[in-house]
């Protein structure tokens, strides 16, 4: 048994049931009513499920993960400190833009295991960078008020005083 997933651009991906089962949204659609005949699944298989927020390139990448984990129990709620296998870390890589898109898609598609992996991937890329570097990498405006900047200076000063009171 297989199901067709349609990306934002309209590209169709035919996937097997075990692979589709890894995607929470698809699983819910599929089992929402009768088996494989939920409201989002047309009786005509060719219509499939449209995933309007996921581009073709990201969907194909996500399906690689689903294919790899098709025989395992889906992770419902994971530990943020869990160790990920080598394969996962190689899969998620270090391309921040791509990881962010995978993260958004995993959240939208409700794939908790992949969501945690993407969080880990982002944290790994950010690790060792200073705040300015993080802002430049992610497109964040450093918008602290003057008072907050003073607070942060005090914070630094506090620890310096604590550690070296003389």
């Amino acid at each position: 048994m297989s199901i067709t997933l349609i990306s934002k651009e309209g590209a169709q991906f035919l996937v097997s049931k075990p692979v589709a089962d890894r995607i929470g949204v698809v699983r819910d659609c599929a089992y929402g009513a009768d088996f494989w005949l939920g409201y989002a699944v047309a009786t005509d298989d060719s219509m499939g499920i449209t995933l309007a927020n996921v581009t073709s390139s990201i969907l194909s990448k996500i399906l690689v993960w689903c294919e790899h984990y098709k025989d395992m129990e889906p992770l419902v709620d994971g530990d943020s400190n869990m160790e990920f296998p080598e394969w996962d870390m190689a899969y998620i890589g270090h391309d921040m833009n791509q990881i962010l898109f995978v993260l958004e898609a995993a959240d939208y598609l409700h794939i908790p295991g992949l969501l945690l992996l993407a969080c880990k991937g982002i944290a790994d890329v950010l690790d060792g960078r200073n705040p300015r570097g993080i802002c430049d990498l992610l497109g964040i405006v450093m918008d602290f008020s003057h008072r907050q900047e003073v607070d942060m200076d005090k914070e630094n000063g506090y620890w310096r005083w604590f550690l070296h009171p003389t």
Partner: peptide, 27 residues
């Protein structure tokens, strides 16, 4: 220009609970 682009950056769309998950993953 950076601020204008930053509004559209993926990180700006991420909800707080996922931001916490990222912080926890690297904590």
């Amino acid at each position: 220009l950076f601020a204008l682009h930053a509004q559209k950056a993926p990180i700006a769309r991420i909800p707080d609970e996922i931001l916490i998950a990222i912080f926890e993953a690297g904590a």
